[in-house]
């Protein structure tokens, strides 16, 4: 399968009064055409900064892309584009859904206007045609009575309905890539189920590739084919959903999987938290960023950062436990 997106060694920092915060510290991953990739990790791990950098949504200053490339559709390096050039890609080639459907729509514009905006601008449709298309999009995302709804304002929609409108806007130009940053976090579970179902359905119909950013591993298991696990600005492990859920190799991934509760557990098992807190990215540790919280940490972990190693096919991780020398010792 061809890659729609190739992120290579991406480093993003923010300049603050306290110093340079290294939010993303060398992230590399690929996304295949038609694939759903989930990026998981805790707050501050750099998952949103990574996705917003792909969209070039983070203002500079204070942020700077220090290194790396984001190759989109095999030909364009998004990092090198001017903001003007980026505007023609944003919304037409790459769509985005944000976490908070309450604040990401313009309260002073009708829903119809907000959907047709991109169609008129990117595809040069006439107003009437765009209007027709907008009605079709609204019914595609499951909004009843689209002809009347299109004339209404965001405050007349509930949270779940607004998220559907957001999805309609992001899909208006049939983007090749859709980035969904915590698309269901602000919603109730029954509405979350509706939205995830909708995203799956639309992905089949339109065939966009999707990057979904979430901290909810249940949603990941439901929708994603591949998973990237981030910690303190780096990817610690990536692989297929089965690799991550059943064959995880990194102690942080183990910790994440153990600290979540499952509704289908019969026994009241003890929750195993990851003790401590993530490191301060103003002064990231010299060695492995997880070493301070890792129950398996060795001397080398504190002093040297582990390299990413391929375990099998698409499954890779960065941990000294998987070092060849280490493995022979265990054997």
């Amino acid at each position: 399968m061809e890659n729609i997106l190739e992120v290579k060694d991406l480093k993003v920092s923010f300049h603050t009064y306290a110093g340079e915060v290294q939010a993303v510290r060398g992230v590399s991953f690929d996304l295949k055409k038609g694939e759903v990739l989930a990026i998981v990790g805790e707050s501050g791990c750099g998952k949103s900064v990574t996705s917003q950098t792909i969209m070039r949504l983070i203002p500079s200053p204070p942020s700077i892309i220090k290194e790396g490339s984001i190759l989109f559709d095999k030909k364009i390096d998004l990092v090198q584009l001017t903001l003007k050039e980026m505007e023609s890609i944003r919304g037409s080639e790459i769509g985005m859904i944000f976490q908070d459907p309450m604040t990401s729509l313009n309260p002073t514009m009708t829903i119809g206007k907000q959907i047709t905006e991109g169609l008129v601008r990117h595809q040069g449709l006439s107003k009437e045609k765009a209007q027709k298309e907008a009605i079709e999009l609204l019914s595609l995302v499951g909004i009843p009575r689209p002809e009347t709804r299109i004339k209404q304002y965001p405050h007349e929609f509930s949270g779940g309905m607004r998220q559907r409108v957001m999805i309609a806007i992001s899909l208006a130009c049939r983007p090749k890539l859709l980035i969904a940053d915590e698309p269901t976090t602000a919603l109730d579970v029954t509405i979350q189920a509706q939205i995830i179902d909708l995203l799956k359905d639309l992905q089949e119909k339109i065939g966009s590739s999707i990057i979904i950013i979430t901290h909810n591993l249940g949603v990941v298991a439901d929708i994603a084919q591949r998973v990237v696990v981030m910690y303190a600005g780096k990817i610690v492990e990536q692989g297929t959903v089965d690799d991550i859920f059943y064959r995880a190799q990194h102690p942080y991934t183990w910790g994440l999987l153990h600290s979540i509760l499952r509704l289908d557990d019969d026994e009241k098992s003890e929750l195993v938290p990851i003790e401590g807190m993530p490191p301060d990215l103003l002064a990231p540790p010299q060695g492995c960023a997880f070493a301070a919280r890792c129950p398996h940490a060795m001397n080398i972990c504190l002093n040297e950062d582990p390299q990413t190693q391929i375990i099998q096919d698409e499954h890779s991780m960065a941990c000294w436990l998987m070092d060849k020398r280490m493995r022979t010792e265990i054997r």
Binding site: A193, D222, D264
Partner: peptide
């Protein structure tokens, strides 16, 4: 029943087999 069914389980095998009841509409 619907509420329990709406919650995704962090286990891909289970999720692939599960039939979900999706409630229509909003509260």
């Amino acid at each position: 029943v619907a509420l329990l069914s709406a919650i995704p389980i962090p286990d891909p095998e289970v999720e692939r087999k599960r039939e979900r009841i999706i409630l229509e509409g909003d509260v």
